[in-house]
Amino acid sequence: MEIKLEVNRKHYILDVTEDERLLDVLRNRLGLTGTKEGCGEGECGACTVIMDGKTVNSCLVLAGQADGRRITTIEGVGSRRSPHPVQKALVEVGAVQCGFCTPGMVLSAKALLDQNPKPTDDEIAVGMSGNLCRCTGYDKILRAVRKASEEVAE
């Protein structure tokens, strides 16, 4: 089955199988391995990508459902030369440990700040509530998002 995708501002026409997930398309067909699979069932958020401005778990999106949509993965956010404020804050606050949750965290935080540049602490907690981290205990991640929001809002 053929699908059209825009991923990180590049356009693709891909031949996929019907039961393939967006996660598989990104990792296996496009080699974008920054998107992680932690659970494969919508619980952990490690596979989070932004689809038409909203976060989704790419492990729950079938390739066909992504047809015609605009996707941003971690590879499409920031660069070493110009990191996104969220990426910078996560590094500076010390909110990155094993890093397996980090790409998903970056995308959830980015999507949150894109919509709501000055979130309250509660709004940050809700915005990040679909992403599990087993290492940090969350506190520093939430602090990093707050810090990034201050920079974004400036």
């Binding site: 919508g42 909203k54 976060t55 989704v56 778990n57 729950l60 999106v61 959830s108 915005g127 679909g130």
Partner: peptide, 9 residues
């Protein structure tokens, strides 16, 4: 319900 990602979908 669910999480932000689940609610979006």
């Amino acid at each position: 319900m669910g999480s932000p990602q689940i609610r979006h979908q």
